[in-house]
C-alpha cells in the first residue's frame, strides 16, 4: 500500500489538443484544459457535446486520435499510469458488476489487488457504504437497488481506491432532488477530506454552481469557456447564457 503522503494529495490533469472521431464524425475537436491538483472542476454542456468521451480519455478508456492527456505530466495512455496514481471513475449508470453483491463490488479493488486481509476489507466496505448513506445493503445485488442507490454504491466503490483523481459522469442525473443534494455534499466533503482532484460532468446547474472551483462549458466538441462560477454567470456568450439560464415557463395567456 502506498504511503500516506501520496494518499493526501490530488493530481494535476492536463488535456492538450485532444481530438477524437467515431466513424468519421469528430466528437472532440481540439480540447485544451488544465485542471489543478485538488480542484473541483465541473464540465457542463448539452447532451452529445462529448463530455463522457472527454472523461473516458482522462482515465485512459479511450485513445485520442490526436493530442494527449497528462496526469502530473505523464501521458495517461502510456503504461503504468494506473499503477502510479490512483484514479477512479463514477459512471453515469454506476456500472456495478451485476454478478457481484454490493459488498463485493465495493471491496473488489482491494480484493483483486490483495492490498488488505479479507476481514479488514469488510470493515472498509462497511465504512465507505456508511459514508454515502447506505447501511445493510452489502448482501444485496445491484439489480435490487434503485438508480440513486446504485450511484451511491458506485461512489463508495470509487472511494475505496482512495483516489487522487475522481471523475464523476453526471452523478446527479436520475436522482431525486434530495439525493442530488446529498451527492453534491458528498463531492464537497470528499474533496476536503482526501484532497482528490475532482472532475464532475453534469447538466445540473445547482450542482455545478454549488461545488465548482471552476467550470468549463463544452459545446459540439469544443471548450467554449472556462472560468469561476461567477465568471461563467457573467459571461455574455450566448451559448453559455442559453445553457445556464434555460428554463421552462408555461406560457402566460395573453389578454
Amino acid at each position: 500500500m502506498s504511503t500516506k503522503e501520496s494518499t493526501d494529495r490530488g493530481v494535476a490533469v492536463e488535456v492538450r489538443g485532444l481530438r477524437k472521431s467515431f466513424n468519421g464524425q469528430m466528437v472532440l475537436k481540439g480540447i485544451d484544459l488544465k485542471i489543478a491538483a485538488g480542484e473541483i472542476f465541473v464540465i457542463m454542456g448539452p447532451s452529445g457535446a462529448g463530455k463522457s468521451v472527454l472523461l473516458k480519455h482522462m482515465i485512459g478508456l479511450e485513445t485520442p486520435d490526436q493530442g494527449e492527456v497528462l496526469i502530473e505530466g505523464i501521458p495517461v495512455q502510456g503504461a503504468h499510469v494506473m499503477d502510479r496514481f490512483r484514479l477512479a471513475m463514477i459512471f453515469q449508470s454506476g456500472a456495478l458488476l451485476n454478478s457481484l453483491t454490493v459488498g463485493e463490488n465495493v471491496g473488489l479493488y482491494l480484493r483483486e489487488h490483495r492490498s488488505k486481509p479479507p476481514r479488514e476489507i469488510d470493515l472498509i466496505v462497511r465504512e465507505k457504504l456508511d459514508l454515502v448513506g447506505l447501511k445493510g445493503v452489502e448482501d444485496r445485488y445491484p439489480n435490487e437497488l434503485s438508480g440513486g442507490m446504485k450511484k451511491r454504491v458506485a461512489i463508495a466503490r470509487g472511494l475505496v481506491i482512495e483516489p487522487q483523481l475522481l471523475l464523476y459522469d453526471e452523478p446527479t442525473s436520475e436522482l431525486d432532488p434530495i439525493s442530488a443534494v446529498t451527492i453534491a455534499e458528498e463531492i464537497l466533503n470528499l474533496n476536503r477530506r482526501i484532497h482528490a482532484t475532482s472532475v464532475v460532468v453534469t447538466h445540473d446547474r445547482d450542482l455545478a454552481f454549488g461545488v465548482a472551483d471552476r467550470i468549463a462549458i463544452i459545446d459540439e466538441g469544443k471548450i467554449v469557456l472556462v472560468g469561476s462560477p461567477d465568471e461563467v454567470k457573467a459571461n455574455p456568450n450566448s451559448v453559455v447564457q442559453r445553457f445556464i439560464t434555460a428554463d421552462f415557463r408555461k406560457e402566460k395567456p395573453t389578454l
Binding site: 485512459g60 478508456l61 459512471f91 456495478l96
Partner: peptide, 11 residues
C-alpha cells in the same frame, strides 16, 4: 460498461 469499470479499477 462493467468492463470499463474493471479497467478503471486497474483490474
Amino acid at each position: 460498461q462493467e468492463i470499463d469499470a474493471l479497467k478503471t479499477m486497474n483490474i
